[in-house]
C-alpha cells in the first residue's frame, strides 16, 4: 500500500471512530471502554504474522510471548465485556435509569 492510501484510510477511520461513539450514554461508558479494549486485542493477527516466519530462537520466543499477551487482551476483553453487559440487563430497571435512557435517541 502506498503511504497516501494508508494516510487516507487512517484519517477516514478516525472520523468513523469519533462518529460511532459520539452519542453514548454515561451509563455505558465502562462497557464501551471494555469493548474497545477487546477490539485492539486484534494485534494478535500481527503477532501471529511476525511469529510465522521468525527464524532465530529468541525471535520465536518473543513472538510466542506477544501472541500470548495479545490473546489475553482479545479473548479476556470480549468475555469480561459480555459479563459486564449481562449484569446490566439482569438488574431490575430503576425509574432513574429509564429517564436517562429516555434521553437517548434510540
Amino acid at each position: 500500500m502506498s503511504g497516501i492510501t494508508i494516510l487516507t484510510l487512517f484519517v477516514l477511520t478516525a472520523f468513523v471512530g469519533v462518529e460511532v461513539v459520539s452519542k453514548v450514554s454515561s451509563t455505558l461508558h465502562t462497557p464501551l471502554m471494555s469493548g474497545a479494549n477487546a477490539i485492539h486485542g486484534i494485534i494478535l493477527v500481527g503477532a501471529i504474522a511476525v511469529t510465522a516466519h521468525a527464524t532465530e530462537p529468541w525471535l520465536i520466543v518473543l513472538g510466542s510471548l506477544a501472541t500470548l499477551l495479545a490473546t489475553v487482551n482479545l479473548v479476556g476483553g470480549f468475555v469480561v465485556t459480555d459479563r459486564m453487559l449481562e449484569m446490566f440487563s439482569g438488574r431490575p430497571k430503576q425509574p432513574q435509569r429509564e429517564s436517562e435512557m429516555a434521553g437517548d435517541p434510540r
Binding site: M1, I6, L9, F10, T13, A14, F15, V16, G17, V18, V20, V21, S22, V24, S26, H29, L32, M33, A36, N37, I39, H40, I42, I43, V45, G46, A49, V50
Partner: peptide, 26 residues
C-alpha cells in the same frame, strides 16, 4: 501502518479515536 495490514490499521484507529472521545466524555 508498519506491516501494511489494513485490519490492524482500521481497528487500532477506531479504538484510538473512539477511546479519545470516550476519555473526554468520562
Amino acid at each position: 501502518w508498519a506491516m501494511s495490514n489494513t485490519l490492524l490499521l482500521v481497528a487500532g484507529t477506531l479504538v484510538g479515536a473512539s477511546g479519545s472521545i470516550l476519555t473526554i466524555a468520562m
